[in-house]
Structures are given as structure tokens and as C-alpha cells.
Design a protein around this nucleic acid. Sequence first.
DNA 1: GTTAGCACTCCACTAACACGAGTGCTAACA
DNA 2: TGTTAGCACTCGTGTTAGTGGAGTGCTAAC
Lengths: 373, 373
Amino acid sequence: MELDIRKKKILQAIIKNYLETGEPVGSRTISKYTDLELSAATIRNEMADLEEMGYIFQPHTSAGRIPTDAGYRLYVDDMLQSRTEELNEMSADLKNRSELLESRSELLERREEELDTAQSNVADRVERIESVLKDVVKMLANNTNYTSVISMPQANRNKLKFVQLTQIDEKKLLCTVVLEGNIVKNEMIRIDTDMDQQILLRLNLLLNNTLNGLTLQEINFDMAARIAEQAEQYGPLVSDIINHIAATIGSADGIEIFTSGARNIFRYPELSDSMRAGELISTLEEKELLTELMTDTGEESPDAGTGIQVYIGQETSVSSMKDCSMITATYEFEKGVYGKIGIIGPKRMDYEKVVDALNDVTDSLDRKFSKKR
Amino acid sequence: MELDIRKKKILQAIIKNYLETGEPVGSRTISKYTDLELSAATIRNEMADLEEMGYIFQPHTSAGRIPTDAGYRLYVDDMLQSRTEELNEMSADLKNRSELLESRSELLERREEELDTAQSNVADRVERIESVLKDVVKMLANNTNYTSVISMPQANRNKLKFVQLTQIDEKKLLCTVVLEGNIVKNEMIRIDTDMDQQILLRLNLLLNNTLNGLTLQEINFDMAARIAEQAEQYGPLVSDIINHIAATIGSADGIEIFTSGARNIFRYPELSDSMRAGELISTLEEKELLTELMTDTGEESPDAGTGIQVYIGQETSVSSMKDCSMITATYEFEKGVYGKIGIIGPKRMDYEKVVDALNDVTDSLDRKFSKKR
DNA sequence: GTTAGCACTCCACTAACACGAGTGCTAACA
DNA sequence: TGTTAGCACTCGTGTTAGTGGAGTGCTAAC
């Protein structure tokens, strides 16, 4: 059996209707509220076919139809494709582009304003990226009524840019590590050896000369031993310090994620029962399971190229999210340093609205960060 | 009407039973399962009195009784008092002490072990306080089946200990700020002025000489202006830097809080309905509302002195927690630098077990951190 | 002051039933 | 051959009525 245009239209109608109402949709509804001009009986026949093909299913006999994951996938792929085509047209014809942009501009402006006011609260304070991201993710959650997630920007390969040791008191050294992409980490190191400024200066030089430009993978035991040798009697101290540095770089791998609007899952009955909600909340709270999704570059995903990735149901391979869909987008903090922003909702979420919202937000983040540079 | 001993015993019996079963408790239950040897009818009379006094109430006619907040308060105060008395006895008589300790030792040891294994995962990595706290709070949530909360240790008055400017590249200075209690913060500062090592050294000296030992309150515009003046042509840059430093100290006020086991609220039906659960989840996610509770020194609380604080229902003044109780304890990270650990559960939580668990955890944290010094 | 007895209340649970939305199938129609 | 009307059937939802049991308050007797 093949998926002709009429079937596709009916499938789309079913999904659209289901997204709006959240109720199984029956043949009568489709026959009445679409421009297909077909009777309910005909629709029923087509629906039986669609069910056989695995795009829709009935929760029970004598109920309407609900899209399956495959159905959603088809719908989303179509949607994304028509989006990118639209985008291409837009860039081909500048006039059209500005007109089309205008149609979206209200929403965009409002969001922009909110972004600005969110930051004017910290106007004369220094703008801290962390709080910017927290504001953004909160705003997104509020606007969409879905749970939102954002990751701190992350260099894809953490190269060491700069190390500095500073003496804090007799027993403590502060080790400041700067990574590619200007990610800064600190580590307090307890020492037993006596120290003076001269030695500290020498150690700083030694460490910077030998370690700068290296990744965590390149700083191994072998190399640590060689450097420690050069440090003569300070060898043990130096190898201790190198351990700390390695650990620090490693900890920078631990991507930081903020969530907002977790309570929104209670808006959707299919996610609200204690079991499901509890598991989801755990996933959001512990964040480990999210990192995979928030670092997935989506190279081989069907939505590649647009920067937008859509995971439907099981596609996340996070079991607590099997009844959810997640859409992510990438923003650029500095050249080569990216972060992700995502939205988690029920499978019947408003994919179009969410994709728009994410595009707007990443656009405005990109502009904001590039302006700063 | 006065609260004689018999009434108190009955009240305690009611509460104990309710904590166990979660069901309203009737007169028959009390008359059968206590050593009071009174008939149900007598208990009923006493119950009517206790209700009049506001310690218990009926969810509806012809149901058993449930403790009110006042009832819980009485119960908890009694419990805490007998605990501290027990403690005093223990310290008075060393022999007794070791015996009593032994009785608790199993639990303590198991917990200790878990703590250790939790950390041996990061054995050869550097032990980062953040991950230690996260492990602890997670363990606590798992052991108690309540939601747990922990705050990063925080100096009560943030004094500046040390500042350092470092040049990262032509356009960027890294400003490292160390506060009393060895809290380290970083700030990236964009500059337009040209820089060289000489000038940087001078600025570093100037800033450290003038700012060290000051609190945020003491670094005002007036002083910034005076320092900027001393910096001659670098005045604007310096005042910009001072702004950044002030902002950084300010941001250190933003206490960091980790939560674990949020899903545990679904174990307790009285917290699980969408509305309540949603609000609670929000409170846990946003954390702002928790800061007040997690910084409350509890000086004027009824449980003062023990380090343990108990908030019952409305006592938290956080509306989403009106059906919860929260118990917090204080741990010491360094001298004068404290953090708090807390447990949030239904009002009918097992107060005794929780107090024990918190005492154990703070003890072991105290020991761990003091050992490290 | 304590207790047994009794009438009363109210929740929780179950069974029965009606309703309605939706289906699949068949037969008729264009 | 594709489309449509009609019809019997299914199944979840909501309503109603009825029952049982746990618990109370009150009264009267001990």
C-alpha cells in the first residue's frame, strides 16, 4: 500500500486536530472540518489503511485515532522541510523575505523586549552569562508552556589556554585554569612544601610552557612525569598540581544544564500520573541523562543542517521520556563554542510553534553574544 | 482547660499512629494499642478536648483525628527536648555515652560507608566539594525517601581576601576574586585600553592594597572614585574593574543549592495532586524561595541551640510548602563558613528518623571537612 | 471519672444502567 | 471502481442507588 496525497492530507488533518484537542479524533471530525469534501465513511476506509501502515492507532475499539511515533515523524519531517524551503525562498527573494519576516515580527519583538528587560534588571551589574541563560530558559518555558532546558556553552575539545598558580596562604595555592573558549575553572590546592614568589613564578612558567594548547587526552602520566622531573625537588608538588589541572579540565566536561518550567508537565495529563511525572522530574533534576541529548550534534539525524533537532518518543533513548518529544536548537557563544537549548513536552506538542520559538531565541542569543565580542 | 499528662500521652499516641499509617486515627485504635488501659469512650472524651484545644481535628464527621500544625509542633518540641536531654546525659556520663552511641552505630556505619564509597569513585580524581555535597544530598534522599536539599557553604559576611588581574588576550582580562572562606569567583573583563605586564602589576598592587579585607558594603562609589583617581590615566578602566569586582562579590551572595529526590513527593498522596506537586517542583527548581530557609540561622526559633530547625506547614512562609514540613541542620565547612542541609517531606514525616539522619550526616561532613584542613 | 450501648453520619466501594462517540461492514449509488 | 448511507456493535464515561464499615457524640449506668 502506498501513501498517496489524500492519505497524507488525512494524516496531517488527524495530527493537527489531535495536537489541538488532545483527544482521539474520529472520522466525522475529519470529514466535517477539512476541505477534502469526503464523507466520514470514506475517511474511515482511509484511516483503516493508515492504521495498517502504522501511522495511527486506536487506544481501544470504538475510539478515534491517535498518531503513532511514525505518524509524528512524518508530520514533523514534512513541517521542517516546508520550513527550510520557505527559508530558501526567503533568502532568494529579499523583498519576500522582509515581508515574511514582518509577519513574524510581533512575536519576535515581544520576545526581544522581554529578553532586554530581563537583562536590564542586572543593567548596571555585570552581565553574567549564567544569569542570561537562566532568564532565557525561564522565559521560553513561560512562553511555550513546556519544560525548557539550556546548556552552558561548551568548547567541543577542551584545550588548555592558560594556567596560573597563586598563593592564597601558607598552606594553599589557587590554581586558575583557562580553557579554549575562555572557560575559567578554579581549584584550591593544599600544600605542605614551603613556597616563595620566586618558586611560584618558575612553576607558573614551567606549567604554561609545557601544558598550553593541550587537551585532557594529551596530558597523560608519562608527560606529567617528565615535567615533574624538570621541576627537580618540587617534582611531587608539580605532579600533584598537574593532577589537579587534569581533574579540572575533566570537570569542565561535566556540562552544566539549567531547566525551567518542570511543572509544565502537569499541564498534560498523559505525563501527569505519579510514575511518569516522577521519573521525568528525576531526569530533569539529575540532568545526567540530558547531557547526551544536549551534546548530540545531530550530524546523522534526519533534521540535519537546520540546527533544529526533533526527538519523538523513544528516539531520545531516555526511558523516562518515552511519552515526550524534545526539540533542541544550537546557539553560538563564541566562535567554536556552542550551547544548546531545548524544549521537552508531550508528543502532541505544538511542533511548529516550538520550532519558531527556538529559532527566535537562538537568533537573539547569537546576536547578543556576537555583539558583545 | 489544661493539657495534663494523660492528654499529652493520647496526643502522642495519635500522632505516632498517624505518622505510621497516614490514616485518621480513631478512639478504638488508641484504646487498644497503648498501655493507657482506657476504653474507647474515655479516649473519645479526651479527644474532644484535644480537638477543642486545637491539637487535632477531624477531616469530616465520623472520621478519626489528624494532628494539626500545633499538634505536630508540640510533638516535635517534646521530641527535640528529650533528645537534647539524652545528649546531655550522654556527655555527663562517658560510659553511658559509648553504649548509647553503640546502639546507633549500625546505621551510622552504614551511612559512613556509603559516604566513603560515594567518594572513592572520585578517589584519584581531586575531591571537589560540589560533587561531595551532591553525593551526600542524593544519598540522604535515597535513605529517607524524602526530598533533600543542601546549600554550598557560605561565609556569612563576604570579605575580599585577594584580587588578581591576568591578561588572557589583547581584549580580555581575567579577574580572579578570592573571598574569606576561600570562595573563588572569576570574571572576564573586556578592555579597549592597551595593556602591558608592568601596568597590570601596578593595577594588581593598587587593587589589593585598597580593597583587601573589605565587604561589598564597604566598596562604594566614593571609594571607587578615589582609587580610580590614584590610577591616573587608567582611572576609567579601574573603576570598571571595581564594578566587576563588586558585582562578583554580590553574585557570591547568590547561594547555591542542590536538590535531590524531588520525585519522592509522589510517595505521599497528600502532596501528589497536580497543583500541589507542580508548585513544589517549581519551588525546588527555582530555588529562590528556598534560600531564605537555607540561610535562616534560627536564632529565635524554638529549636535553637541544637543546630536542628524544624518548620511545620505554614511555618516556612513558603506557600507551596504549606502541606510540608522541613527540617534543616547546619554543617561547618571551614571555621566561620557554614552550609545547610535540609529535608522536605509531608507534615506526617518521620521526624525522629530525619533528625537522626541529619545529625549523622552533618557529623560526618564536619569530620570530613575538618580532617581535610 | 469511667464505661457500655446506641443512634447517627459520612466516606468508600460496587453494581447497574444509560449515553454517546466511534467503528466496521454491507449494500446501494454514480 | 470509488464513494456514500445506514446499521449493528463496541466500549469508555458518567450517573445513580445501595451497602458496609469505621467512627463519632450522647446518654445512662456503674
